[in-house]
Design a protein around this nucleic acid. Structure first.
Lengths: 118, 118
DNA sequence: CCAATTGTTCAATAACTTTTGAACTAAGGA
DNA sequence: TCCTTAGTTCAAAAGTTATTGAACAATTGG
């Protein structure tokens, strides 16, 4: 059970920009970037919308080549395709993330950090 | 007769990305960048669509803060807001332009260069 | 096996975007 | 003044994207 992802050379500039041109998806990307490669499952983003809606936005990100989703049991572990995007469009993702980090207009994920078991 | 433009600090990341996520507008930006600051009027882009349609796309670019349009008689001279965008989102426009330059899927403006009078 | 958890799919609707043609404004030149 | 050039505006139509809830599938744990 693997999900479809574009190859690096199939990633399209207008599609990537269009997909990133949405506050919910930009918030997802910003949160993924803030977690530095730690894979996250869908449920972590529930602050940003309903389960169905996140499934939709996460599919857009995956189909555009911005994220990778690996199936792990009932979870889909999601990571940013940082290296692939940087190979395809050097500097683009970094500048988007840097701009997104400072953007107070974007919705925020969680008022809390990852819980460490006591 | 001046047209409305956002101030640099009013330029929004998701709006800029969404506006650039369109092949016609990306082709306009690429062509403006290739002309290195030389102002162009609308008619130069007629390869990319009808006059009405270009008016629509150029208005989107201007309202997003990506281009500046100065009225000069019956012409609107259009330039990229490179410095403003770089101040607001460092590196973003450069990486978009660099990626767009190599994108064979984008529509092209003109099969010809600027005509120099003989 | 049963129930809970995780996420997808589907169809409907709502909301937005793109494209078009016709009508219009405004400036410039003959 | 009249005609041309340059571009806008408007309203309609077409197309796309986002959001929703209900139903579904797959895995895990009891």
């Amino acid at each position: 059970m693997t999900l479809p992802h574009p190859n690096t050379d199939q990633i399209s500039l207008p599609i990537v920009l269009g997909v990133l041109g949405d506050p919910t998806r930009l918030a997802i990307v910003r949160y993924l970037a803030s977690k530095q490669g730690v894979p996250l499952n869908c449920s972590q983003f529930l602050d940003l919308g309903s389960k169905t809606n996140l499934s939709y936005h996460l599919a857009k990100l995956r189909e555009a080549g911005i994220t990778r989703a690996e199936v792990a049991g009932t979870n889909r572990m999601i990571t940013l395709r940082r290296a692939d995007l940087d190979a395809r469009f050097p500097g683009l993702l970094d500048s988007v993330i840097a701009a997104a980090v400072d953007d107070p207009a974007l919705p925020a994920v969680g008022g809390h950090d990852i819980e460490m078991p006591a």
